[in-house]
């Protein structure tokens, strides 16, 4: 029963979503199903918040290593929650001036918006900016010319990275001019070797072809897995009956 009910719900919802994709008349059914998912996700958010509190309170209570971070996490969670729920600093909406809570909680000048702009965004940007350093370290490792394939990868990466800068054009154009004078051919016929155009060829032909192959494989994989979920062939995500 514990597995059968979710399986039936998943199958029925899946069939409704497929039908709504092909049958315009059933479009609203699909929208309805997604609204139900949103409702479930919203209710589950309470579970998540409760779990967060429980985990960190346990950590503080047991004085486990790093419990100080848990204090910061819980404080930040409660402060954000209270400012968001109380709509601190938010002016009432124009239509309901007598209701102090009628304004949008993300209103400019409100407490929640202030926290978002001046605390959350800088923190998120800091995390995101770490990516630059990680790209450098990953590229350094990936592009080591250990064998023939790695050398091809390194050469291709060099062309693409250099070809995307203005320097790529300025450096490769004189080389093409010299090549043209040596071979006696038209400069225009050798222009496809200029780094920016070579970059376009690599990204629009080789990379795109590989990317499409991966995309088709992904699409087929999704079809196959969805079918197995709908038919109940794959039940590993449903847990046990016990």
């Amino acid at each position: 029963m514990k597995r059968t009910v979710p399986l039936v719900i998943a199958a029925v919802t899946g069939v409704i979503l497929i039908a709504s994709y092909f049958i315009p008349y059933a479009q609203s059914w699909g929208e309805e199903a997604m609204i139900w998912f949103d409702i479930l996700a919203a209710i589950a958010f309470v579970l998540g918040g409760g779990n967060l509190l429980k985990m960190h309170l346990q950590k503080i209570s047991n004085r486990r290593a790093g419990w100080g971070f848990s204090v910061v996490t819980i404080s930040a969670f409660l402060i954000t929650l209270s400012i968001g729920l109380s709509k601190m600093g938010v002016n009432p909406a124009e239509n309901f001036p007598e209701w102090s809570w009628s304004g949008d909680y993300l209103q400019e000048g409100g407490g929640f918006k202030w926290m978002y702009d001046y605390i959350y965004l800088p923190l998120a940007s800091t995390m995101f900016s770490l990516l630059a350093f990680f790209i450098a370290s990953a590229a350094f490792r990936a592009f080591r010319a250990k064998n023939a394939e790695a050398m091809i990868l390194l050469g291709t990466a060099f062309i693409v990275l250099f070809g995307r800068t203005y320097a790529g054009i300025y450096v490769s154009q004189p080389i093409i001019d010299v090549l043209a004078s040596i071979t006696g051919s038209e400069v225009e016929s050798l222009m496809s070797l200029r780094l920016d155009r070579l970059t376009s060829t690599i990204t629009n032909v080789f990379t795109l072809a590989g990317n499409r192959a991966i995309t088709i494989g992904i699409a087929l994989g999704i079809v196959s897995l969805s079918l197995k979920v709908l038919m109940g062939v794959d039940r590993s995500y449903l847990g046990s009956e016990e």
Binding site: G217, I218, S236
Partner: peptide
């Protein structure tokens, strides 16, 4: 891609 979906 597809290897990932083939995992199960």
């Amino acid at each position: 891609g597809e290897e990932f979906f083939a995992a199960s």
